[in-house]
Amino acid sequence: MSSSHFYSSITKKIIMSLMGLFLLTFLLVHLTLNSFLLFDKNLFNEGAHFMGTNPFIQVFQWVLFAGFAIHILYGIILQIQNWVSRPKGYKKRAWMEQSPFSKYMIYTGAIIFIFLAIHLGNFFFVKMGWVGNGVPELGGKEDMGQLVIDLFSNGGYVAFYVIMFLLMGFHLDHAFQSAFQTLGLNHPTYWGFIKGLSRVYAIVVTLGFVIIPLVIYFR
């Protein structure tokens, strides 16, 4: 039985887009916090401490994980249906997509997922004490900043993170405006603005995430 009997294609897409917008907001928060590291490690540690102890955030992080899970799950379901809907492909198919990265969302998405696992392994799991030797301490407090700095002193890691962030940028470039389109928020008077904003968001977030490891590495 096709899953379309549970939810219509549009409902599934709406869920995808709402989760996606939620994750886009999260990325902005994450980036803001990371950027503290460029100015002051202590400030970053304060932020990390707040995130790690605030009860609301503690609950919310599970909501965030759920958001990821739903976004990924629906992404996979939709993609499988899309593959099934064209059993035989074309011999020659020109480039027709107007949103260029839309073509590779499942692939960039899968890569982001792998990256996410590694990223969690690098930080979150360490912090939770599930892997590694624990977070270094400074003045009796967890020095998350140092954990990051240590990691990014490794050129290999920096290169890996930079490439991953670029791929994530491609995902975001399509994602932002696509979510608006799916939610029906496309009108000639503001559609150009949304598309522009989407591009700006993708570039700013990608550059932001890319610059931080580079700055740490070369500092």
Binding site: S9, K12, N82, E97, K103, Q177, T182
Partner: peptide, 22 residues
């Protein structure tokens, strides 16, 4: 109409906008 479209096995829109271009 959306239910019928789904039932017939058309794929899901991923906002590539290729349709409009073509």
């Amino acid at each position: 109409m959306v239910a019928k479209m789904d039932e017939l096995g058309f794929g899901n829109c991923t906002n590539t906008y290729a349709c409009e271009a073509e």
